[in-house]
């Protein structure tokens, strides 16, 4: 798998889990998970991917989490 594709997939997997959780703060929890377990370079890369046309490949929760990471 291409590294970019893998990163998008990993982010979406996290979103899939938190989407199943009760409560109104799903995007916040996705952001918290990304901040806790992904280093700043990986987060920056995810943001860069989102900016460079991959936003539509990202789960809505990830998109909402991006400004918080």
């Amino acid at each position: 798998m291409l590294p970019e594709k893998k990163l998008l997939r990993m982010a979406n997997q996290i979103a899939t889990f938190f989407a199943s959780q009760p409560g109104p703060d799903k995007a916040e929890r996705v952001a918290a998970h990304l901040k806790d377990f992904w280093g700043p370079e990986m987060r920056a890369e995810l943001k860069a991917l989102a900016r460079s046309g991959h936003e539509r490949d990202l789960d809505d929760l990830v998109r909402r989490a991006l400004p918080m990471i």
Partner: peptide, 18 residues
């Protein structure tokens, strides 16, 4: 204060050149 790389991330970053 920021988390570092996990093994698969290290390998991805190595392929990516960083």
């Amino acid at each position: 204060p920021e988390p570092g790389l996990r093994i698969p991330n290290m390998l991805d970053a190595a392929v990516g050149g960083s």
